[in-house]
Amino acid sequence: MSNTAKSATVIGAVAVAVASVAAMHGNTPAEAAAKEKCYGISLAGQNDCAAGPGTTCAGTSTVDYQGNAWTLVPAGDCVLYSTDASDEVYKLPATADGAPREGALDALERDIPSA
């Protein structure tokens, strides 16, 4: 541990910080009491014992991306985002936005701490 971390200043600051946290009124989120119904199945992932797609498809062809055979370019929603470092706003105006949106399964907060 560095000397800085051991300095009296830091010790004092940590003690004050902990004391202020310890003095807070109980504020545990009510999540525990909420009925847990959402299983977030999009995250589940699967082993199964079914066979796949038959006799012709990806399994019998390989694509050599190091040679000239790789002609595919990313062509999904990545076109929505600029990668130009001079762009302050990374997301381009959604002119041709038709991207499917799925429902949010997760609580999402922009930042912590919120206070």
Partner: peptide, 8 residues
């Protein structure tokens, strides 16, 4: 015929 156990 070649049947595939696809469970689909």
């Amino acid at each position: 015929p070649l049947l595939i156990d696809a469970h689909d």
